[in-house]
Write a protein that binds this DNA or RNA. Structure first.
Length: 204
DNA sequence: GTAAGGATGCGCT
DNA sequence: GCGCATCCTTACG
């Protein structure tokens, strides 16, 4: 079986909400390092959130260019991984264009290959608790801040590919989660997308 | 089943 | 110091 082909940069170099929607159903691929077992992991992206530009008060980029947000201002198709609540690494994908801070947060995935290896990273997780949240999936797939700014178009270590056997049939949208601090318009904007009725989504 | 609170590090005021 | 794009455990019914 040949390795899944990474999506090209042109896929990410589009409006953030479009990318967030189109990422649903794609395969997140992770080649584990030898010390973690060396398996190729694959998981279906089932939930995303768009964070779009300097005017989006929920987007880290609204704070301006800082050492932390530098990746968000960089070229599309790179990973933006940051630490939240002192404990969890959250995985985003930089979108749109260079110098415009925007990205898509991956909030939940459905295991397709290597689930045993994923559960090794989260031995206490039952059933879909394995990867039905942004902090859970990074741990299951061993994604951390060392992947910040990683180029996802290279097909090495961490990348995203199309699934030839899967096409989303019904997509739902709603407000983003955990951004109560944002202005009303941004707090209520339906920029969270998920595969309807998928049991791996973080919240119904 | 739901609700509340603690864990924990770092970027920013 | 404060607050955070979260998760887990504990308490209660």
């Amino acid at each position: 079986m040949t390795a899944p082909v990474p999506l090209p940069r042109a896929f990410y170099a589009r409006p953030t909400l479009t990318v967030a929607r189109d990422l649903l159903g794609m395969q997140l691929c992770r080649q584990l390092p030898a010390e973690l077992g060396g398996e190729l992991l694959r998981a279906r992206i089932v939930e995303t959130e768009a964070y779009d530009g300097p005017d989006d008060t929920a987007c880290h980029g609204a704070k301006g260019l800082t050492p932390r947000t530098r990746t968000l201002f960089g070229p599309p198709g790179h990973a933006y991984v940051y630490l939240i609540y002192g404990m969890y690494d959250l995985f985003n994908i930089v979108t749109d264009r260079t110098d415009y801070p925007a990205g898509v947060l991956i909030r939940a995935v459905e295991p397709l290959q290597g689930e045993t290896a994923m559960r090794r990273q989260r031995p206490n997780a039952r059933h879909h608790q394995l990867s039905n949240g942004p902090g859970k999936l990074t741990r299951a797939l061993a994604i951390s801040r060392q992947h910040n700014d990683h180029d996802l178009t290279l097909g090495q270590t961490l990348w995203i590919s199309q699934d030839p056997d899967f096409t989303p049939t019904h997509i739902s949208c709603g407000p983003r989660i955990g951004i109560d601090y944002a202005d009303d318009a941004h707090r209520l904007a339906p920029w969270r997308c998920w595969l309807s009725h998928n049991p791996w989504v973080s919240r119904p």
